[in-house]
Design a protein around this nucleic acid. Sequence first.
DNA 1: CGTCGCTAGTTCACCTTTCAACATTTTAGG
DNA 2: CCTAAAATGTTGAAAGGTGAACTAGCGACG
Lengths: 158, 158
Amino acid sequence: METETATRWLTDTEQCAWRTHLEVNRLLTHQLEKDLQPFGLTMNDYEILVNLSESEGDRMRMSDLATATMQSKSRLSHQVTRMENADLVRRENCESDRRGLYAVLTEHGLETMRKVAPHHVASVRRHFMDLLAPETLTELDKALKPIAEHLRGQRGRP
Amino acid sequence: METETATRWLTDTEQCAWRTHLEVNRLLTHQLEKDLQPFGLTMNDYEILVNLSESEGDRMRMSDLATATMQSKSRLSHQVTRMENADLVRRENCESDRRGLYAVLTEHGLETMRKVAPHHVASVRRHFMDLLAPETLTELDKALKPIAEHLRGQRGRP
DNA sequence: CGTCGCTAGTTCACCTTTCAACATTTTAGG
DNA sequence: CCTAAAATGTTGAAAGGTGAACTAGCGACG
């Protein structure tokens, strides 16, 4: 019985593509973060603002927000506390479930969102979107969708 | 004179692709990290081991290592201290430049590398590589290379 | 040669993330 | 009902990351 299989190392092509992928992700994240910095926001902050502003009543349950942004409850809790101190967000009790809390966009949070979004979009265009041919973009999406699917399936497994 | 230009928001297709891209990166990183965890390594650790093991004499100058892994000197210094405590790496003085230090792979670091690499490669295959058709992979690489190029150019600009 | 500026690397204080422990409320089952 | 298990969210300590200040050595130019 064979328990060990010979390792299938990456071919040169694969290795090259893989490293490019890693590099782009890192540099891109770094750059977007930097472009957001003048507004005093991190990508984390921004993502939360986006999620809230796209939700009914500019609010989401902490749990759902944690799931949507793929953060631990703990991390989100700290994060929201910080954003609360910056008056971007406030917590509000949930009527129907007394354990629950909503994170709610404040007026200032909404304004911030409106002010920052165009810059962020421009940043995404400048450093990513506009460097891809449109059909390449759809190719990319088609290639990545199944991977996203697969990875979502792996979440929280042994 | 026109100072403000109307924001070019992302089209639905673009938005969808962008979000997929973000999601894949996050989930993938998370998964690879998790697969490395049983060995007591982070991706950061692993990347440093790879860099060292691919270098002449299993050693690199701190500065070069920082550049290669795109970390600040400060972060790398902490990182190497941790890895030194785990006996994966040791610091060694540089003869030719007395300011300089080498990070050197230890025997145990090398063994660790050999033990872990096959698992990591398998992980990359399982969660990414093997989910892409070979020609899609080269497409992906071709699309991403110019972006990497562009982003490298942006590094350390105002 | 001296000194002024540059590079290498560490350290310090501060911020963010993680992990485990906890309090509270809901839900499911006998 | 009443209790056990599960879900919601917070907290606090420890680990990891950041940016600026600092030490020390190099190097070039008067």
